[in-house]
Amino acid sequence: MAQAQAAHGSDKYYIPHGSKWPAVGAVTLFVTMLGTAAVLNGSSMGPWIAYLGLAGVAYMFFGWFGTVIDESQRGLYNAGVDRSFRMGMTWFIFSEVMFFAAFFGALYYARQLSVPWLGGEGSRFMTNLFLWPDFEASWPTNGPAGIGGDFQTIPAFGLPAINTAILLTSGVTITIAHHALKAGNRGVLKIFLALTFLLGFAFVGLQAEEYIHAYKELNLTLGSGVYGSTFFMLTGFHGLHVTIGAIMLLVIWLRVMKGHFTPTHHFAFEATAWYWHFVDVVWLGLFIFVYWL
């Protein structure tokens, strides 16, 4: 049937045929969430249900993206469909920006409002006097009760600065790869795309190193009061996004190696590049507001 619709010509909007993948995705995500909830509630069955669900989600991704890549290779996606994909990706990235905004908002609130108030700033001096008389507002802090015990922070101009350099460089390499793709220079494309995802994975590796250092030597943990909470949730969700972005880059690279994409038709490449720049920009926010200032 798909071929029948391809015969419509390129000006007609392509309506894909039915697919089992949405339903598979919904069921497997349900199982994953059920399993994760069971893990959190301390059930011994939990991990197995969660792994089963995750395996199913992975299967869904392979199957769904496989179908889409196949349809793309067969030329079913005309300019109209391409435009839909571009708009869709743009607004998806915007929704991700808003997700990070919630955590940046929490960081801002803690630093500018809740910690100074606990320290007795302005009209809140009674709070300090009656509840936490020994507490002086400062940042970083684990709060008036010293939740999680004394800790040290990670200086901005050590490993985080190196990670900043890595991500900024990867932003350059993917742009070089994109120009090479548009110029039809596949050799340069392959090398610079490979460099990009290698830099991405290097970032994740160094971030893991930093976490181990924080937990083992600095006593900086997720439970280190509001500093530890905001630090690990912001950098953790960012690290997760870098990991996803690096996997996307790897997939795109494998597709390049198989000969996919043309100088004019390469939406998946561009979507991945947009996503990569997005994680890059979020990192700059993190570097400045979490590590540096």
Binding site: L40, S95, E96, M98, F99, F100, A101, A102, F103, G105, A106, Y109, A110, L113, S114, V115, W117, L118, L131, T141, N142, G143, P144, A145, I147, G148, T221, L222, G223, G225, V226, Y227, G228, S229, T230, F232, M233
Partner: peptide
């Protein structure tokens, strides 16, 4: 909707992973 997802995620970590976004003892609110 993503902001709400972030808010309930913080509830989840406050309950299960020892974060203190919403607890004054740890500097949150």
């Amino acid at each position: 909707m993503p902001v709400f997802a972030g808010a309930v995620t913080m509830l989840l970590t406050d309950h299960f992973f020892g974060t203190t976004f919403f607890a004054a003892a740890g500097g949150g609110d």
